[in-house]
Amino acid sequence: MAGDLWKDVLASCRRAVVGYVLGCSFGILLGTLTGRIRLANRVLSPLGHVLRAFPPVAIVPLAITWFGLAETSKYFLVFWGVLFPVWIGTHAGMSHVAQTYVWAARSLGAKRQHLFAEVLLPASLTHVLAGMRVAIGICFICVFVAEMAGAYEGIGFRISTSYLVFRVDRMLAALIVLGGMGAISDQLFHFTTTRVFPWTQFNK
């Protein structure tokens, strides 16, 4: 029994991590494009805001139709949920990078291809991280929803099967584990980012 729980936790974590990493990567990419390039903003932002209006929960049936009951539909759903807050955060940061940072970097010899990693991303990092932190919560909601809708393992699956056989104890245990995963991830994220990027904590 305990071994089963671990198996489910692991499956859920894997989905969370894969979807989260994909969502963050695309969110940062999209936010950089819309935040820095006027044409990209004109074309992609309206599209993004329309797509954003579809709640991840509502696209579950569609995701399953397209990607089947296998892992792809889970990853897609988490990706979808994570993408938008990270995009919005990155866009907000990228569109407000002080001109002097870019100018200073250019006059110190930075080429255009250096700007993203050396200036734009660090200069928008507090916004990007805010989006990523919001996305952690959404990420777990999406994992849960995806697993409820059809899966063979995972915390969501465990809760839905326990419900079918009225095992309230198992449901509660799984629920606590799920809540714990979310809370721990959030705290771990906060702890790690404030230590790796101490300058984001300065108020100046």
Partner: peptide
């Protein structure tokens, strides 16, 4: 050409 700006031009990160 090295530019020294009035302020807020150091990279805070």
């Amino acid at each position: 050409r090295g530019m020294v700006f009035q302020k807020h031009a150091l990279f805070p990160w």
